[in-house]
Amino acid sequence: MGKYVIKRLLIAIPTFFGITVLVYIVSSLAPGSPLDLLLQDPFITAAEIERKRIEYGLDQHVIIQYIRWLGELLQGNLGFSYRTHLPVWGMIVERLGPTLVLTFSATIFSVLVAVPLGIMAAYKPYSLWDYASSGLSFIGSATPNFFAGLILIYFFAVRLNILPIGGMYDTSGIRTLPMLVKHLILPAAVLSIQQVGRLIRQTRGSMLEVLSEDYIRTARATGLRENLVLVRHALRNALIPIVTELGLMIPFLIGGAVVTEQIFGWPGLGSLMVLSITQRDYPVIMGITVFVAVAVLIGNIVTDLIYSAIDPRIRNR
């Protein structure tokens, strides 16, 4: 087990450097330049732009630029925002909390809804129940977030006026948990719609497969009651692909739901990313990208560790 963890961690090191190279190359290949922002000032002079160019180090070769950036990065310095002149790391940390609140509550809700639905659909395949939950899952995964968001805002915020349109707290300046929950419901529901769709199908599929296995027949033949057969023998085996599906959701969990955060004005990482892209705030764009990529890297290692906790055959490899 210890060996397995160390192996996974060692593989992560070259992956990390690969990520930094990719992020840097893509950022420097992207059209436009950090200096474009300066052009918004009508009185700026060519000499002033040239001075900034040297100050930012943009006159150096791209490899030199990369190495300097990487050196700072390894010391934990993500640079300063061109827009706000604040440290990028601080900006990310400030936005991370709201994002995690939103995405984790959406994911926990999705798991709680989708896994039981998927199990029941697999237990009685081709029943009315199965068709209903499959239908639900197709509609869910086929509905774009912006559309679902607008529909929900229209009904619950505009017509019924029972939930706020957006934001995380209201403008009174008082921050309470009930208020947060009230603001959370709509964006979390929008995010859940797609997740539920994916998870129902995954759970149903893997559960159906497991239920036809011989050891389920063995368990039944020992006189174990059907609900115990499901929980004790089937579920744990069926969890392996479900964990994969959840592992694939990690980038989304950390990076935030860009579109949904934008619609609901949720002050998370996703909306910071959109803002930074439109403002050509390169240090923030690169900072968030590296941060999310590292989070995914760690998330994948955690997923692997969960696998080996569930499945002893992986542990001993």
């Binding site: 296995e213 011989d214 050891y215 027949r217 063995t218 368990a219 033949a221 020992t222 023998h233 744990r236 085996n237 569930i310 499945d311 002893p312 055959r313």
Partner: peptide, 14 residues
């Protein structure tokens, strides 16, 4: 009680 043919798949792997 019953003994099945395939002990490879007849026992729960986890």
């Amino acid at each position: 009680a019953m003994i099945f043919q395939d002990s490879m798949t007849g026992l729960n792997p986890v």
